[in-house]
């Protein structure tokens, strides 16, 4: 699905990584590890096309990634540090909009997804009144509304409680089992069958 060859990235005159190469196939989960400032987020943003300060080659389903931006955007779901949930809107309004950018979902499906993610009863509360963990869950409901493809998740576990962590782990496992791929950064210890890891930065 995704292939990275000889990827180099320098930021602010500091080398983040050099000669990075990996292949991510359908059905696989790759956890990117590394200390703070080792370039995990940068790597994810490069793959999504949000950062172009790199040299090296990226391939999406065998063809250069840069030449098929539309296909990549359609088959990729990115949830970054900033989770793209507006605080004055309700979870329902947020998801109504974000689903229209890719696969429109009707209100019934959105409410169902919010229920599954543990936000039943909060669909119509403004997001600024939610707790940090609930706020994060609003963005995770997008995982339920999008089909296959590549999930790129940047520190999705940070504010979740233990129940939320299990929930997300199950989502990731099910996505991989159904032929999707997941690229994830986290300091959390993931328990998944067939998990692969990539460590950035020099081990000290």
């Amino acid at each position: 699905m995704l292939e990275v060859r000889a990827l180099n990235c320098e930021r602010n005159d500091r080398l983040l990584f050099r000669d990075l190469a990996f292949i991510l196939e359908a059905g696989q989960v790759l956890q990117v590890k590394g200390g703070n400032g080792s370039g995990k987020t940068t790597l994810l943003r490069i793959i999504c096309g949000l950062n172009d300060s790199y040299s090296g080659e990226l391939f999406w389903h065998g063809a250069p990634l840069g030449e098929q931006r539309d296909a990549v955007c359609a088959g990729l779901l990115y949830i970054g540090h900033r989770v793209a949930v507006n605080r004055v809107l309700t979870p329902l309004e947020n998801l109504r909009w974000s689903s229209r950018l890719h696969h429109p979902a009707d209100d019934g499906r959105i409410r169902e997804a919010l229920g599954q993610i543990g936000l039943a009863g909060y669909e119509d509360s403004p997001c600024h009144s939610l707790s940090a963990g609930q706020y994060q869950r609003v963005s995770l409901a997008r995982l339920l509304l999008r089909g296959g493809g590549l999930w790129v998740l940047d520190e999705p576990f940070t504010t979740l409680d233990t129940h939320g962590v299990t929930l997300l782990e199950n989502l990731v496992r099910r996505h991989a089992e159904s032929g999707g791929a997941v690229l994830i950064t986290t300091h959390h210890k993931l328990v998944l069958p067939g998990l692969r890891t990539l460590t950035l930065g020099v081990a000290e």
Binding site: V83, A84, V85
Partner: peptide
Amino acid sequence: RSDYEDGTLEQLLLSSMPLYLL
């Protein structure tokens, strides 16, 4: 500004729709 701060702009850029239209 708020779209930049909460990450909405990133999602707009990653939409499969033409950005100029949005």
